[in-house]
Each structure stands twice: as C-alpha cells, then as structure tokens.
Design a protein around this nucleic acid. Structure first.
Lengths: 215, 215
DNA sequence: TGTACATCAGTGAACGCGCGTTCACTGATGTAC
DNA sequence: TGTACATCAGTGAACGCGCGTTCACTGATGTAC
C-alpha cells in the first residue's frame, strides 16, 4: 500500500527506460571514479548497474557518449550548488579563500573526479566531434561559474583584468593542475597553500588593486 | 676518413647498447607525442626506432619505465634551458610575461607534451612504486624551477607568500590546467590572456605588493 | 696471433588476456480494432 | 473486454582486434689462455 510518491509497481516503457538509463549513468560514475576512464570497462559498468552491456548500447552510443552523460549530470548538479555557496564575508579575501575551500572539499570528497575529466579531455581532443560535444558541455558549466565571478564583482564593487569567463577558467585551471601534483604527491595537498594560490591569482587579477584601508 | 669526433665504425657492446637505448628513447618520445600515452604501442615505438619490441625490453623494464626515461631526458633538457632563459627587464611584470611566453612557446612547439604528462600522472598515481619514481623525477625538475623563482626574487628584491617551490608549482599547475582548456577549445589559446593569468598569480603572490612608482 | 668458450643485445614468434562493439533474438509492453 | 499484431528495451554470445609481456634462440662481441 504505497502512495503515488512511493515506488510505482507499474512503469510504462518510457519510464522504465529512463530508470534504466539513470541507473547506468549512476553506475558509470562510480566505476569511472573507481577505475579511471581508460580502465573502466562497459562490463564493469553494466554489472554495477545490474544490466548487461547491451542495455548500455540501448541507451548510449558507446563509452564516450556515456561519459558525456555522466559529465553533463555532474556539471548540472555542480552549477546548481555553486549558485548559492560562495557568499563570503565583507572582505574579498574571505571570498577567495572560500572559493578555494569549496573546490578543495569537492576534491577531498571525490579525488578521482578531476583526473577523470583530464583524461577524458585528452582522449576527446583527438576526435573533432567528441571534442565539440565536450566543449559545449564545459562551456555551459563555465557560464555558471562566470555568473559567480560577476556576483563577486558586484558585491565588492570591483572588476577584473579579464572577462569573467576567463577569470573562472583560470581558477579551474589552477585547481586542475594542482590535482595532478596531489596525485603524484599527496603530501603536497595543503589547504593554506592552495587558498593562497587561488587568492593570489584573483587578487592579482583585480583592477584596480583592492585597497585594504577601505574599512 | 673521419676524425675521432665522427661516427665511429667500431662500437663495443656498452657503447652500442647505449646507442640503441638512446634511439629507443628518442623514438618513444615521438610516438608518445603523436599518439598519446595510452594509444602509443611498444610495436610503434620499436619500429620507429628501427628495432623490435625485444630490444625495448632489453633496455627497459616495460612501457612505464620507458616513459620515465623520456620524461627524465625532457626535464633535464628543460631545466638546462630555463636556467638562462628567463632574464627579463627591470620591471617584474616583464619577467612574469616572459615566463608565460616561454611556456606558451613550448606548448606551441609540442602541444601534445603536457597532456601526455597529465595522462601518465593519472596512470602512475594508481601504482605506488611508479608514483614514487614519477614524484622524485618531477621534484628534481621543480628544484630547477624553484631556483628560477629565487633568481627573480633576488633580482627584484622581493619575496613571495609561498616557498619558491610552491610558487613554481602553481605556475606549472596554471599552465597544465589551461592546456586542458586549449585541448578542448583551441580558440581559447590567447597569448595576452595567459600572460595576464600568470602575471596576476605572481603579482598577487608577491609580498609586499610591488610598487609601480619605483622608477 | 690464434683458438675455444662465455656473454648478452637484439630477434621473432607466441602467449595470455580483455575490451568495445555488434547482432539475432526474446518477452514484456503498447496499439489497433 | 478481448484478440492479434507491432514495438523495442534489454539479453547473451560472439566478433574482431590489438596490446604488453615473455622466452628460447642467434650471432656478433668479449675474454681467457
């Protein structure tokens, strides 16, 4: 005796397929994170989802297409969360460190995510069509981040020497690069150091330089 | 009638093996750059070098070991070149832009190099022994870069908020991250933008902030 | 200088293995009447 | 409501392919005497 909010025993074909697709994407995310893009196999993913490889091919064009689906969901969820996360205090420096902190926390939660995207990017860059799909997926995500940068500018009455989108791209690049360092040598992962790096980049990009003697 | 400086017709075993090894490393570099770490095969490499796969295994423990040899040679050559390259003018800003320029030129010359190292890093991070070998190889290279940072400090009578090694690590990270962006969307490769990013990072990291009214 | 033996860099072929993709098929769901 | 047929999500197995690694062997180089 379940309400309509509970698991419906009867699903039509469209609903059932959507459910299967979602299960595969969720399973793919886990397997990709656990094994990396190259080492993750469609067998692993199908089994993790409780289906066979055929089910994957019934829902996706192939491994690349499946990964793009995982990536799209990830970015959508991230953009939503970011939208209300980086508020910070009255000091811009606090906001800068908060930005670094949010990224670092995400990394600590899923350290394999960033290398995963890096590997897929290298892979995708060798196939024009795939590269274009990845590009547009990422660019949509960068829109959200650029919006955050604009918010920071508005709140603190300032501007940067580069377009908001490039400001965000740089922060992401710094993070992505440091993730490689941390992968090689986890001992280098230091919150204070990374906060200082991000803050320095944004501080140095601000124009005119922020005056500390405002308050 | 060649002098002793010419190609010696007679090579003893040690010399001949060293020659083979060098040829394989050089061929490996080309094939890795052309196809990427995962897609490059030992068959490709051996053929490119003019040997069979057995010759590779006679000189290296395997694919990973061979890549580390390529990496070691690259870093050695780079460290040497850097040592006399980033001189810059009287303005620190010029030096910052020169640093960005040197990296960008290297990228333009061999765009596949950075993704190659990123992919190998992800790969190596999954094997403790391999990761340690990569770590020490990289750390040696970072020593050279840290030396460059110290030179800049000495020349301009300044210091940074982070140890020289981390300053360098951050610049490298920014570059590595942007390379991923450029791989996805080559149109984003813009000299001015990247110079501004690197300059902003270093400018923001300087303590106390550089005074423009010195001259 | 010459001979007999030892070494070992590089050969060539096979091994062992697993992956992404395809495809004929099935049986539950959907549709037409 | 019931029947006959159509659809298609997911199955299961095979296909096609290539890779990293191993290994018995060879023949040129090195060594001992």
């Amino acid at each position: 005796m379940e309400t309509t909010l509970g698991r419906k025993p009867r699903l039509n074909r469209v609903e059932k397929k959507a459910q299967t697709r979602a299960a595969i994407v969720a399973a793919a995310r886990r397997v990709f994170l656990a094994r990396g893009f190259h080492a993750a196999t469609l067998d692993d993913i199908a089994e993790e989802a409780g289906y066979t490889k055929g089910a994957v091919y019934s829902n996706f064009a192939g491994k690349d297409d499946l990964f793009l689906a995982v990536l799209g969901e990830h970015y959508a969820a991230r953009a939503e969360r970011y939208a209300s996360l980086i508020l910070g205090g009255d000091d811009v420096e606090d906001t800068y460190r908060a930005i670094a902190g949010v990224m670092l926390d995400a990394y600590r939660r899923e350290p394999a995510w960033w290398p995963l995207v890096s590997d897929f990017s290298t892979h995708a860059s060798r196939d024009p069509q795939l590269r274009e799909r990845l590009r547009s997926t990422r660019e949509a995500f960068l829109d959200a981040l650029a919006g955050q940068v604009d918010d920071v500018c508005r709140r603190h009455g300032m501007r940067y020497a580069l377009p908001a989108r490039d400001v965000a791209r740089g922060v992401g690049a710094l993070m992505r690069g440091m993730v490689v360092e941390w992968a090689i040598d986890p001992a280098r992962l230091d919150r204070g150091t990374f906060e200082e790096m991000v803050a320095a980049y944004l501080r140095g990009l601000a124009v005119p330089p922020p005056e500390r003697s405002t308050a």
